[in-house]
């Protein structure tokens, strides 16, 4: 089977800092992949390169067999690469409805979905449990609901690859359980790339885990393999070995 996403020698420098350093990465369709690593390891920079929010210094990104390295972010979104933000950035002054209507009408314009805007919006809001808050201003929603709205917007883009950047940050434990169920459901129709600090969430959700450290991939494997990997424990889990 051909990978949905491949990067070859992907690098990005910020001044003298090599935030992402020659990363070769492959993601199979249908997978839930978690990306973990200590702060500053280059995780967010890596997914920003994939989504097109920033341009790479060198290297190549291939999505579904096509080289997308030089495509602007909006064009990648239209191919099915959706990114949800680490820091919640819903449109605070618009209603939840309008927030989701924007991605829904985009997919309608691109011919990637059919039907009325209203039906598409309500479907995405219902999947995330926000339907009864459709006409609330997004900025007035609770933090947890804003995170869910962010996911609803990602879903409404009909992504083939959904990138979730620290989605459970700031959520209560009860909200996290619902969230895990939601991501599992999303994974039925999309490939998920998840940056996450909460290890129980990672261990429950991920099919495979990629560990970043200092801009490079330190290790990659199933949750069991990663848990057992001594290098990872040194770099990230903070365990000391005698």
């Amino acid at each position: 089977m051909m990978p949905l996403l491949t990067t070859k020698g992907l690098s990005r420098n910020f001044g003298g800092l090599r935030a992402v350093d020659g990363v070769d990465f492959a993601l199979m369709p249908g997978e839930i992949r978690a990306v973990i690593g200590p702060n500053g390891a280059g995780k967010t920079t890596f997914v920003s390169l994939v989504s097109g929010r920033i341009q790479p210094s060198s290297g190549m990104i291939v999505f579904d067999g096509a080289d997308i390295t030089s495509l602007p972010a909006y064009a990648r979104v239209r191919l099915g690469v959706a990114y949800t933000f680490q820091i919640t950035s819903v449109f605070a002054n618009l209603t939840a409805y309008d927030n989701v209507a924007l991605p829904v009408q985009r997919t309608l314009t691109d011919g990637r979905s059919k039907g009325a805007v209203h039906a598409g919006v309500m479907a995405a809001l219902e999947r995330t449990g926000l339907a009864d808050r459709a006409h609330m201003q997004a900025g007035h929603l609770s933090y947890g609901h804003q995170r869910l709205l962010e996911v609803a917007m990602g879903l409404a883009l009909k992504p083939r690859l959904l990138i979730l950047d620290e989605p459970t940050q700031g959520l209560a434990d009860s909200e996290i359980d619902n969230f895990i169920g939601l991501v599992r459901e999303i994974a039925n129709s999309a490939t998920v790339l998840l940056i996450e600090h909460n290890m129980p969430v990672v261990m429950q959700l991920a099919d495979r885990i990629t560990v970043f450290n200092a801009g490079r991939i330190l290790a990659e494997g199933t949750p069991e393999q990663i848990r057992a990997n001594a290098e990872v424990q040194d770099a990230y889990l903070g365990a000391t070995h005698g």
Partner: peptide
């Protein structure tokens, strides 16, 4: 949407 947050609008697929 562009007025409210242009960067976010781009990430929803808008030129």
């Amino acid at each position: 949407a562009i007025r409210e947050n242009e960067g976010r609008t781009k990430m929803l697929g808008y030129d």
